[in-house]
Nucleic acid binder design. Structure first.
Lengths: 190, 190
DNA sequence: GTCTATACCTTGATAGAC
DNA sequence: GTCTATCAAGGTATAGAC
């Protein structure tokens, strides 16, 4: 089912991206070999280089494909509302179908400097900037950073460290507790 | 200076461990080759296998050596005091001399399943268990997990993502804000 | 016993044949 | 558009030199 019809560029590319997403998510960048990915896709390994240039480029494209566009909270919502949306997106969301959140996939591959750089762009440019804009007071960026740290840390706990507590806990309770932490930050204006 | 006297088992081992710590901390598990480590230590690469068995075993020993024994807070201190001590240890402490905190080194090498397993033992068994014991109420373990997530996330922000905000912020302010978040958890008893 | 030479297998990457 | 060498680098094992 993964094997594309022979001589079908588009299907080959798609099959490779698909296999890459799964392999990278499960084994990380270094743990997934191009030969394994190609075998999963039912094509020859050299096609990866023909179509994507390098393993790194394949990784970039595979992981980028499902980074959510924006954040599902109103533009004028406060930090707590945004944080709540992010908790659901990064931590609680059942991603059994779509796999791990791309940020967490990147975290598991953070040995590579290029991956860390993408992470920084993604986290700082996309998420933290948005968060910081919703805090008021002197050190909005520091408080946004702490919210980001909490979120990222929850993802790391669940997905990298592998602690079962967050997965097994009542999602509503998780949202309530993390919400209380964010509200404490809102109260502590600089 | 790194080259041990020839035919000196202890000195060779030490030199290898030393070089390994530096290489692993800077480049992660996959980014540090046994040949590079051995070259740094001024010895032949195959000695790594003679003395440690495998690269993984060398990593385990190199990283284990400087995981702090216990946590520098009184046995009867509350969660906030312990969290404060941990913030200093993991995030704020100037480890320029001793290098990154071993937990963060492990995080940067978290592509490998064995590394993740060590991380889980370390984080859950050592840090979270201690934290959970200091909360009272129903879901002490969940609240301990959230404190751990905040701490780990701060370390990840600084060391993996590479965001400059935490490093450049006033340490006292960081302690005050993270303390407020932990206190919010104490208040939210299950 | 302590170290060195060397060789083997896997993996990322390239060149050129079909 | 696809596949078959082929290469360099890296982890690992073994034999043997001092």
């Amino acid at each position: 089912m993964n094997a594309p019809k022979r001589r079908d560029r588009a299907a080959t590319r798609t099959a490779l991206l698909d296999a890459a997403r799964r392999r990278f998510a499960e084994h990380g960048f270094d743990g997934a070999s191009v030969r394994d990915i190609a075998a999963d896709a039912g094509v020859d390994a050299t096609l990866i280089f023909r179509y994507f240039g390098s393993k790194k480029d394949l990784f970039a494209e595979a992981v980028q494909a499902d980074v959510p566009e924006g954040i599902s909270a109103g533009d004028d919502a406060g930090p707590a509302a945004l944080a709540d949306a992010l908790v659901r997106e990064v931590v609680l969301d059942d991603r059994a179908a779509s796999g791990e959140h791309p940020l967490l996939v990147m975290l598991r591959s953070a040995g590579r400097p290029e991956v860390r750089e993408r992470l920084r762009e993604e986290v700082c440019g996309r998420y933290l900037a948005d968060l910081a804009g919703r805090f008021d007071g002197e050190d909005a960026d520091l408080r946004a950073e702490l919210v980001g740290a909490l979120l990222l840390g929850m993802g790391v706990m669940r997905s990298v460290v592998g602690s079962p507590v967050l997965s097994e806990a009542d999602p509503e309770r998780v949202r309530a507790l993390s919400g209380a932490m964010v509200e404490a930050l809102e109260r502590a204006k600089g």
